[in-house]
């Protein structure tokens, strides 16, 4: 076993995902603790060019193959199994994503490597891999260890600010030829299906900006829509906004609407009636903007601002856009 920390690079439509940089950010901290290098594993059809953006790593190993181009985790799995077998790193980090979740368990069994899922923090202490995990829907924090290692970790999104994994370095970039036969992959890619135009499914969104009666008029909705656009979020709402037909019924959150659990629920001008809260209380992060300090939404929110939405929302949209720029 080496002391290296490996990170799987994830990319979609030619773009590296935020999750990749989050993993690199964690890897940057953990690799020195392990006493090894941070190695980025870049797999795909035509991916050599992406290596430049992986400055946080000490080494980038890339594998190019026609069959790695599509969203078929099994192909990745076969290549990774071979690679990890040969290189035997101390710790391999995978994102909790559509790809990562279809890899970790299989690699764990195939390579007989212990794995930890739902990781929020990772460290190597006295040679052991130690993870802090959020289990039971965030109701319990579990500190778990893989004594001595080696091991695998499935890391939750948001475990580390992505910025920590973006840096200018110039890693050594090496091509690796897979020693496996990808013709044996049993899962076949047939095509991508884009989401149907028309209405969004708010139960599947990572970020929801939710509006309540505090917006007062339909003409004011664009103010909130602009914030949603800046965040890449969908708009949802409390019932009165749907009653007024400012948004379709599919956007209603609550007892008689949808139950949602996004990573961020930003409640704007919503009082937080129990019927509403029933549909959103399990969101990962709840931020509320409401002009009334006694509004019950502040009892379920993690962060709140007692403020006029017409003042804060445009400023917030601007701040989000500036940051992206």
């Amino acid at each position: 076993m080496s002391q290296d920390v490996f990170v799987l690079v994830e990319h979609l439509k030619g773009q590296l995902t935020d999750g990749t940089f989050e993993l690199l950010g964690i890897g940057r901290e953990v690799a020195p603790q392990a006493g090894g290098r941070l190695v980025a594993l870049l797999l795909g059809r035509d991916v050599r060019g992406l290596a430049e953006q992986l400055g946080a790593a000490d080494v980038v190993l890339y594998v190019e193959d026609e069959r790695l181009g599509d969203s078929v985790p099994e192909a990745y799995r076969r290549v990774l199994a071979g690679l990890l077998q040969e290189q035997s790193p101390k710790l391999t980090l995978l994102p909790t994503s559509s790809l990562g979740m279809d890899l970790a368990g299989a690699l764990s069994v195939e390579l007989n490597l212990p794995m930890i899922a739902f990781c929020k923090q990772l460290a190597v202490q006295d040679g052991s891999i130690v993870a802090t995990c959020e289990l039971y829907g965030g109701r319990a924090v579990v500190e778990a260890e893989i004594p001595e290692g080696p091991g695998l970790a499935l890391v939750l999104p948001g475990a580390c600010p992505a910025d920590k994994g973006r840096s200018e370095g110039a890693p050594a970039v090496e091509e690796v030829k897979p020693s496996v036969d990808l013709a044996e992959v049993r899962v076949r890619f047939k095509g991508l299906i884009e989401p149907p135009p028309g209405d969004v499914d708010i139960t599947r969104q990572e970020i929801l900006v939710s509006v309540g009666r505090g917006v007062q008029r339909e003409e004011n909705l664009p103010i909130v829509q602009e914030l949603a656009d800046a965040l890449g979020a969908a708009l949802s709402s409390s019932r009165p906004v749907v009653d007024q037909q400012w948004l379709p019924p599919t956007r209603q959150v609550g007892k008689s609407g949808m139950t949602v659990k996004p990573r961020l629920y930003l409640a704007v001008g919503i009082s937080g009636a129990p019927e509403h809260v029933e549909g959103m209380r399990d969101s990962d992060l709840i931020v509320a903007i409401n002009s009334d300090a006694r509004a019950p939404i502040f009892n379920v929110a993690h962060y709140g601002a007692v403020a006029d939405l017409f003042e804060v929302v445009p400023k917030l949209a601007e701040a989000v856009k500036n940051r992206g720029a």
């Binding site: 979609l12 995902t17 599509d70 969203s71 899962v187 299906i193 989401p195 969004v200 499914d201």
Partner: peptide, 10 residues
């Protein structure tokens, strides 16, 4: 997949 996209696999 992320972003509401789906992959059709056989």
């Amino acid at each position: 997949l992320p972003g509401g996209v789906k992959a059709e696999l056989e």
